[in-house]
Amino acid sequence: MDCLDPVRKALLDDLDEGFAELYGVHRDVVFSTALRLSGRWADAEDLAAETFLRAYRAVAGYDAERIAALQTRPWLLTILMNIWRNCARAKSRKPPPDLREEPMEVVDPREGVEDAALRKETGDELAGLLAQLPEEQRLAVVLRHVADLPVVEVATVLKIPQGTVKSHVSRGLKRLRTLGGVR
């Protein structure tokens, strides 16, 4: 078991200590993905919290062999993706919200005035453009270039072939350049 990373080693040792390790290593990637999928800070908090809770409940039922084989990052992001898709499906059954009354808002409550100004110049605009991409392209671009996953992991998370991941990403990037006027 020497080849195991610290997260899996800790999970095998003690579920709660292992979870602390899992959370410490993956919290930023899970939260960032949740934020760029949902587009809202509060939704991202709900989504990320639910992801970690479900992960904990799932791993509580896994045997040692399964934990030892766990690829923790794509596994967590797969859980997140399932929750996100179920939410989106549940929302689509309700009457559609009036988008003009619900502006996309990505505000970190901790950020100061200068940070907010900086975000307006860079993040906000690009995040808005991301929201205009078709879902499959947006998921692929967020996982590949915001969460910084290798293509093989994106393919695992989205359950599509690596070639398809590459084409979603390149079409998504092309569209972002057109939309944003970025070369």
């Binding site: 930023d28 970190d108 993040g123 991301l130 270039h145 990037l173």
Partner: peptide, 14 residues
């Protein structure tokens, strides 16, 4: 620059 800006959309968990 687009890839750099996308990478910049990653944030720290609250």
């Amino acid at each position: 620059p687009l890839l750099a800006r996308l990478a910049g959309l990653a944030v720290e968990a609250p």
